[in-house]
Each structure stands twice: as C-alpha cells, then as structure tokens.
C-alpha cells in the first residue's frame, strides 16, 4: 500500500513539477490538506496543489531533498532532521495548522470510566496488567498501540508515557481503523485513536492529568477550552526561500474559512 502511494507520489511529482505546489507527509493530516487544497483551488483557479501521504518522515525527507514544497507532519521535526536541513543552508519554518485530540478507548462492555495519566502509563508500559487493579473485572488488559512509524505513536509516548518506552511486545496495529476494529471485538482491549474516529463500537475514557482530581471526557469542546489534556499540534513545514510560493495557501488555512474546514474534518481549530 505504502509502495503504491510512493509510486503515485513520484509520478504525480513528475507530472506537476513545473506548475504546482506539492504537499507531502503525514497520513493523519492528509484528509485536512486535501479538503483545504480543493477549496483553495476552487477559489483560485490558477493555483495547482497536489497533496500526497506516506507518513511524516516521508514528508520531511522530501522537504530535505526539495521534492516537496510543504511537509505535513503530525509530529515535531526531529533534531537531526532540522540539523540536516540547516546544513543545506535552508531555514525551515514551522506553522501549526490545527490540533488533534487523542482519545483512549476500551470495549463498550468495560465498566471502567475514568483513568489517570499514571494509570495509562502503567498499562502501556506493562506495569498494570489486569482490569481488576483499575476497579474493573478480573480480566487481562490487552493494550493496542499504533505502529512505530505513526506520529500518533510518538505523541502518545511523549504525552502520556512521559517518554518511557511502550512495553516490550505491545500489539501494534497498522491503522486507526484497525485499532477500533480490534478493540470492538476484544473485551480486555484498550487503545488510543484520534478524536474524529470514535464511534459506537468502542467506549472512550475520561482522562485526568492531575492525579484524579478532575476527569475530562474527550470532545471537541473540551479540547477547545483546554480542559482535555491529550492534544497535539499538526504542523506544516516549509523552507524560507519558498515562502512567497506557499504563503497564500498557508494563510488560507489559518483564515476563518480554512479553520472552518478544520472543524468539519474533526480536528480542533488553532484559534
């Protein structure tokens, strides 16, 4: 699948190499960029924007090689990626275009409603192994994680696990849809997904980052008023020398109209 995407990306970049702006990178940001680009092109018929996925790392290395104008990323650029960019004499600019909230989900029959960050850390690092310890049934906990390649994986590790590593041999799923599917058919399952993916087949958990004083439900409203803690920024990266070309589109995303689309896709507005 990735290979096909890659080949399409290469073909597309060859076709559009002269006339267009190219956006490449994270699959999380992909639907948003597509929607924004479509609407932008409707308003500016002369503009030509192509959006491709492949993953945050793919986008940033494409930016390094100069084969994309904007890299979309669901994680912050890594230190040595930035170093590499700087060594080619380019300065990279970072823009936050939206926020994404992560929800922790369990099987609908699970009686556990609330969890603290410390408990989540215990579960995903393998210290807590039975639902009994959290006031649930006597049942093994099966934590599901995303693949290591995913920006979501990195963000959850940073925010919830405080950079500790996931337990050795955690179940890792290739896509958010697969996590939802697996948890809906595994009674002891627990996993994390983007807010927009929550449906009736799974139950979301209220989270507390203050050791159990207040528990907040994952929702767009709670993410907007900053009470929900597991929120991450989504980025666009571009090089300064390219700024005049990409600026109008970036400005469009940050405009009121662009941010309305952010809301529509299920992400959280910047302002």
């Amino acid at each position: 699948m990735k290979k096909i995407l890659l080949i399409t990306a290469i073909l597309l970049s060859v076709v559009y190499i002269i006339s267009a702006q190219k956006i490449k990178g994270s699959d999380t940001v992909l639907p948003l960029s597509q929607e924004e680009a479509e609407n932008y092109m409707k308003k500016h018929p002369e503009a030509m924007i192509t959006v491709t996925g492949g993953g945050s790392g793919v986008g940033i290395s494409a930016l390094l090689e100069g084969t994309t104008d904007i890299a979309q990323s669901s994680r912050k650029i890594k230190f040595d990626e930035r170093q590499k960019l700087q060594s080619t004499g380019k300065t990279v600019k970072e823009v936050i275009i939206a926020y994404d909230a992560l929800a922790v989900v369990v099987h609908p029959s699970n009686p556990v409603k609330n969890m603290t960050r410390e408990q989540l850390e215990g579960i995903f690092t393998g210290k807590i192994r039975n639902w009994k310890e959290l006031g649930g049934e006597d049942m093994k906990i099966i934590p599901y994680s995303r693949e290591t390649s995913s920006g979501t994986y990195e963000f959850f590790k940073e925010s919830v696990l405080k950079k500790r590593n996931y337990m050795n041999g955690i179940m890792s799923m290739p896509a958010t849809g697969a996590i939802i599917q697996s948890i809906s058919q595994t009674k002891g399952g627990i996993g994390y997904v983007g807010l927009a993916y929550i449906n009736n087949n799974v139950k979301s958990i209220n989270i507390s980052y203050d050791e159990g004083k207040t528990f907040t439900a994952p929702s767009v409203a709670n993410a907007l008023n900053k009470t929900y803690p597991i929120v991450r920024p989504l980025f666009y990266y571009y090089t300064i020398d390219n700024e005049t070309i990409v600026k109008p589109f970036v400005d469009y995303i940050l405009s009121a109209e662009g941010q309305k689309l952010v809301d529509k896709i299920g992400f959280i507005k910047v302002k």
């Binding site: 699948m1 990735k2 945050s56 290395s61 290591t148």
Partner: peptide, 21 residues
C-alpha cells in the same frame, strides 16, 4: 499469542524513518 513478522515490520515502519538513519 501475537507475533510480528519481518515483512510486516518493514512495511509498517519504512514510511516514517529518516533516510540513512
């Protein structure tokens, strides 16, 4: 019990690695 295979690992991870790392 769950297992992880080599091809699955390559497919799932290659997309996000920095080239040359």
């Amino acid at each position: 019990e769950p297992v992880r295979t080599i091809p699955a690992t390559i497919a799932a991870e290659l997309g996000e690695t920095a080239a040359g790392s």
